[in-house]
Design a protein around this nucleic acid. Structure first.
Lengths: 185, 185
DNA sequence: AATGTCTGTCAGTAATGACTGACATTATAA
DNA sequence: TTATAATGTCAGTCATTACTGACAGACATT
């Protein structure tokens, strides 16, 4: 049921989908929808509750890094897209319809903020270790994140708009650029 | 009238706004809305017609460049954000409600595709001139664009989510990273 | 004065959509 | 088997909303 709701709302928007449609797509009757969730709004809230990735990122950052710039940036990028793609539709709903659930926007924005601090911390440590030359870790972390975010959103909305360019190639190239730019002279 | 429509639809979405609201916000009667545009859908189409930036970019790329990597990337970034911010609300509508106008998505996506070819061309020429070391111009242009796009969308949706970080700082840092990465050894 | 154009008002239509209640049906567990 | 819980059916309520038609006043042009 939640699955059907997420599918349809992410496609047509909260106001663009009827409770009938959702129930039908779930193979249940509209009545049971209301028996379970009480209201359409509450159904959306239930669906959005799943969204959270900061914790997963924290675990990742405290366990999977090898303190070698290139391979770390690569694995961070891949983890990021893995997580974001898993919640693709939830993010699409969040972008389109966050006005419908009060407070959700704030909750949602905590996660990338957390990621930024993890990444900044990482750059800082690499700096201290002498493995990278980060003149401005916070801004560089932010810049790295924005590139990933842009590529993800582009993929989300535009699909394969740029022929001959894949997400994987982008990740490779972006990491290469950062490594070249941050490596020690 | 179109102004009011763009304002409201970008805030609440196409289905989240009534023709009454739009007319009231424009200081006109609902009747005149229908007299002018015939339907709500047609009103949206009229509002979206303005969106186009490829031509402006073409003019920019053929006239304003000085063939010095840092200052060119800087002015390209600034031009990009200037254009995108001018059409902020239109882009927001496009992201939320592009399903409502058939064919609009394709028309809209032409513009960044054009930009990508301009930027790729630029990197190619810089390479030939010996002013930059672009191993893979198309991918590097794409990566540069995705960073700008990510920062723009982030600003659009999240406003000032990351304290102490501004769009201008991002532009500076991002250009710095690319310059360092692409400069000749 | 007469005509055309633009706008507002108001009342109304037809459809839609969230949501409810009464009752029957099925599946599950005791 | 029986009690219980979950689900379906169906009819209906109530508010909303895109859209229309009839009519009237404001304004400019001729």
């Amino acid at each position: 049921m939640l699955h059907a709701a997420i599918d349809l709302i992410s496609e047509k928007g909260y106001n663009g989908v009827t409770t009938q449609e959702i129930a039908a797509a779930a193979g249940l009757s509209e009545k049971t929808l209301f028996r379970h969730f009480g209201s359409k709004q509450n159904l959306l809230e239930s669906a959005l509750e799943r969204f959270q990735y900061a914790e997963e990122m924290r675990v990742f950052f405290s366990g999977k890094l090898v303190w070698e710039l290139e391979s770390d940036l690569l694995s961070i990028s891949k983890k990021y897209h893995e997580i974001m793609n898993r919640d693709r539709k939830l993010i699409q709903i969040a972008i389109q319809d966050e006005g419908h659930i009060p407070g959700f926007k704030e909750r949602r924005l905590q996660h990338p903020r957390q990621l930024l601090t993890f990444l900044t911390e990482y750059f800082n440590k690499m700096n201290e270790k002498g493995m990278a030359a980060c003149s401005n870790p916070a801004m560089q972390a932010f810049t790295f994140m924005m590139a990933q975010y842009g590529a993800f959103i582009n993929d989300l909305e535009a699909g394969n708009n740029y022929p001959g360019i894949s997400l994987d190639q982008f990740i490779q190239e972006n990491v290469k650029i950062f490594v070249k730019s941050l490596s020690i002279p």
